[in-house]
Each structure stands twice: as structure tokens, then as C-alpha cells.
Design a protein around this nucleic acid. Structure first.
Lengths: 144, 144
DNA sequence: TATTGTTATACTCTATAACTATA
DNA sequence: TATAGTTATAGAGTATAACAATA
């Protein structure tokens, strides 16, 4: 079966594409702002948030952040210098270092998440049914 | 009238927030990829795209890109070195320099836009009616 | 030999402050 | 004096390549 091509010139499609671009832009701006309120860069905020779930090897962090492992060294260095993250040995493999949030790091991450929830609050304007529709539409988009 | 608070703990809301985050992440990845295919950084791609509409003063570009004017100098420098952009004097004010795309720049921008349209193609999975719904929902979100 | 994390290097983006040429 | 663009500087993220310790 041949894959069907979307009509790129369809004005409605173009408008929706434009709107998605706007949502993406606003999402990013507010993410950066929220991070900056805690004196974090975007990359630092992402890494810190990842670690609130569980300690992770440096290598694993690089995969999650989609960057080279050498970069993670610096980001963790800076977070560690502020006492938000610490490096622990991995009992199972002495080559591995596990990055883990400290208590202070967890506090900052909590504040960050609250700010982000607020940033994402445009959803407030939608009813329960509308949220259901939006979920379905987003799922279909992502499945494409 | 008191502003109503969205229930942040509502599982559906959290799920939709998560989905939006996923869409945002994918959008950005594909934007960077598309730019990289033309040996452009994200900032360079944005600036180049802006200029395809009309030549703009450096100051104006900084506003559009939401960065300091001093940064625009470097980005335009690099694009100019590749012959994709040129600086023109403004006949009305000799302090102003207008950045404008060259023919070659326009060609690259066109290729970039095509790649982006392709990247945004997840919309292909939606019917006309679904695109209408999505537009309405996005508009309501952005209005919040 | 292969893998983990690090270091060294170089480039880009970023903001701040100081400078120049115009207005 | 105010504004437009630039330069100088410093910090952060990024990729590449080479390295030490461990597997």
C-alpha cells in the first residue's frame, strides 16, 4: 500500500502547523523561564528532573538528554558544585558513576515542577471532554 | 471573579501535559535535524526563515529571536560568510543595517521549509474534521 | 578488547558592558 | 543625548578525539 501524502497546501493544515509551532514556542519559553527562576539552564533543569525518579549512570543520562556523554560531565559538575546532585559509585561496576539528586536538589526540582505545571496551565481553559479529545488527537499525531 | 484553578492532580490533565511535552520534544528534534541537514544551527535556521519574508534591521531580528542584538551580529556573520545572507544599508537611516537573504539563501530556506513540512507531517494522520477540532483546541489553549 | 567516564579542544549561542557612527 | 550595530568578554551547551580505569 502506498503511503498517502498530506496536502501541504491545505490552508487548514498550514494553520494548524502554525498553531503547533506557537504552542511549542510558548512551552519552551516558559520552561526556560521556570528554570531560570531557579538559576538553572534548560539542560540542567532537564537533567535534575530526570534524576528525581532514580539515580542514573552518566552514560544513561547522555542517552536521555540525547547528547554526548562528555557533555554530561560538565552539566553534572555544575549541579554538583551547587550541591543539587552528587556522584555515587556503582557497587556492581566500578567503571560506572551514578548521578543522584541530593535533598536540596529534590527541593529545587519540586519548585521547578510546580512552576512548570503552572506554565502548562493553558489546559485550564479546556473542559474534561475537550481534554479527552485533545488527548486522542495528540496520540494519533504521535502515532503517525 | 476569582480565577479558577485547574486540578493539577487530575490524571487526564497530567497525561495530556505529558503528551504535549512529547510533541514539543519531537517538534524540536525534527527542527534541529532539518536545520543540520543544511549545515545550519537552530538559530541560523530561524533567522534565515525570518528573512525570507522581508529584509530586517539587526535590531528587529534580535526582537524576533528574543535575544540580545549583539548575538545577531555573529549569527548574521556566519550566514553571510556562507553567502546565504547579506547586509544592506538602510537609505532612510545610515545607522541601520538591513539583513536580507541572497538567492542561495532563499534556496536553502526553501529546502529547509520542505524538510520542516515533512517533519510536521504527523498531521497527516488526522482527518479534516479532526484538524478542525485540533485547531479549535489549540486556539483555546493559547487564549488562556 | 570493549566500555565508562573524563579531559582537551573547538564552535556556537547567550548575556553584559563598552565602543562607533549616526541621529 | 539617544539609538543602531559592533566588539570584547565570559559562561554554557555541543560534538569530536584521545585518555585512564575497569570490565
Amino acid at each position: 500500500m502506498a503511503t498517502q501524502r498530506t496536502p501541504r497546501t491545505d490552508p487548514l493544515t498550514l494553520e494548524v502547523v502554525e498553531l503547533i509551532g506557537t504552542v511549542v514556542a510558548r512551552y519552551h519559553e516558559e520552561y526556560e523561564e521556570a528554570a531560570a527562576e531557579h538559576a538553572l539552564t534548560g539542560a540542567q533543569a532537564k537533567l535534575l528532573s530526570l534524576l528525581t525518579l532514580e539515580p542514573l549512570p552518566m552514560r544513561r543520562l547522555a542517552q536521555k538528554l540525547r547528547c554526548e556523554p562528555s557533555n554530561v560531565t560538565g552539566i553534572v559538575d555544575r549541579l554538583e558544585a551547587r550541591g543539587l546532585v552528587e556522584r555515587r559509585p556503582d557497587p556492581e561496576d566500578r567503571r560506572v558513576k551514578l548521578a543522584a539528586v541530593t535533598e536540596e536538589g529534590r527541593r529545587v526540582a519540586r519548585g521547578l515542577r510546580d512552576a512548570l505545571d503552572f506554565a502548562r496551565e493553558p489546559l485550564a481553559g479546556l473542559s474534561h471532554e475537550e481534554r479527552l479529545s485533545l488527548r486522542a488527537l495528540l496520540l494519533r499525531m504521535l502515532a503517525a
